[in-house]
């Protein structure tokens, strides 16, 4: 019996040495170590052995079985590794081929830049106010110190709905709406669509977007106005941005100013982009007119504030170098995909 066991051992070793297929390994295992295998048959015949022989042969049989199964396992591992390596070679791909993309859409460039602006002002403690586009004459003009027959109405070619209702020509009515509802401290921006009766061309549109800003509190100064807007401009155009505040006139601010930034192209020397002026007009601003505060029930002797209005389209055009306003409203995907 011992001899038989050793024969099994050596024939399995021999077989393993020559086997190259995973399948044949399994066959070997079944043939010798399986339930009906040869080694199992030997073990079944153990009953015929003497009491002395039995543990010896039993130990030997177990030893051989353990040895063979571990041999088979390691051969299997070896063959598997080999197979895997062959497969890895076969599975070479061209990694320079394009990936499978799921198309993600984009926000309109006006929204993208507006969101940036919102975040800048939110960081400064501002809230976002919203209001109607179809607006009472009172909010759009009267309460902003632009009474009927005021020449300033000329410069804002207004669309009328009724005698007392207009399409708002500016986001400034939001100043009044906010001040009527909320007592200082007030820090808001109010972005939105405004309307002026301008024919469509590369730089004009009857519909465009503004962002109004308003700060009202005790002790707000013109220096605060400058600081806030300068910080904002640097956040948009970069830290090296140079700004200037130039006197101007708006009926609802006093003093009033326009903010210019040094031309990005020529740095202030004067070029085609800035029409030789060296500066590009970015926004209008000023200290809230005491009459406007009073119109909203805020005592101008106690409170002061500043306001500003930014034209969104021009800001975005400058940022991306867009030269035609109409592109914003044509919505050609070839345009929308660029931002």
């Amino acid at each position: 019996m011992k001899q038989k066991l050793e024969e099994i051992n050596s024939s399995v070793e021999e077989l393993l040495k020559n086997s190259t297929e995973l399948d044949s390994l399994e066959e070997i295992r079944i043939k010798y170590l399986g339930k009906k295998g040869e080694l199992t048959a030997v073990l079944k015949g153990m009953g015929a052995l003497s009491a002395e022989e039995r543990p010896v042969i039993g130990a030997l049989a177990n030893e051989i079985r353990d040895f063979l199964s571990s041999e088979i396992d390691s051969k299997k591992k070896e063959l598997e590794e080999k197979l895997q390596n062959e497969n890895l070679v076969k599975e070479v791909i061209d990694v320079t081929m394009p990936g499978n993309k799921k198309e993600i859409g984009k926000l309109h460039p006006l929204t993208t830049v507006l969101n940036e602006l919102k975040d800048i002002f939110i960081g400064l403690g501002f809230e976002i106010a919203e209001g109607p586009e179809v607006e009472y004459d009172y909010y759009n003009f009267e309460a902003l110190n632009i009474p009927k027959n005021h020449p300033a109405r000329d410069t804002q070619d207004t669309f009328y709905i009724e005698d007392n209702i207009v399409l708002r020509t500016q986001t400034s009515p939001m100043q009044v709406r906010v001040m009527e509802k909320q007592k200082p401290p007030i820090r808001i921006i109010a972005p939105g669509v405004v309307y002026r009766s301008d024919a469509v061309d590369a730089t004009h549109s009857p519909v465009f977007n503004q962002i109004e800003g308003l700060v009202v509190d005790k002790g707000i100064t013109m220096a605060d106005l400058k600081g806030t807007l300068e910080a904002c401009m640097k956040a948009i155009y970069g830290n090296s941005t140079v700004v200037r505040f130039r006197p101007h006139h708006f009926p609802f601010t006093e003093p009033s100013a326009e903010l210019d930034v040094a031309c990005f192209v020529c740095g202030g020397k004067g070029c085609r982009i800035c029409k030789g002026e060296g500066w590009i007009e970015v926004l209008g601003c000023g200290m809230v007119h005491p009459k406007v505060l009073a119109n909203c029930g805020i005592d101008p002797e106690v409170y002061s504030g500043f306001a500003f209005g930014i034209g969104l389209e021009r800001l975005v055009m400058r940022k991306y170098g867009i030269d035609d306003l109409r592109l914003f409203f044509e919505n050609d995907l070839k345009f929308l995909k660029q931002f």
């Binding site: 400064l124 403690g125 401290p185 820090r187 700060v215 509190d217 005790k218 002790g219 707000i220 100064t221 013109m222 220096a223 605060d224 400058k226 600081g227 806030t228 300068e230 910080a231 505040f245």
Partner: peptide
């Protein structure tokens, strides 16, 4: 005119 940040 100086440049200051909002206080208050």
């Amino acid at each position: 005119i100086p440049v200051t940040l909002l206080t208050g």
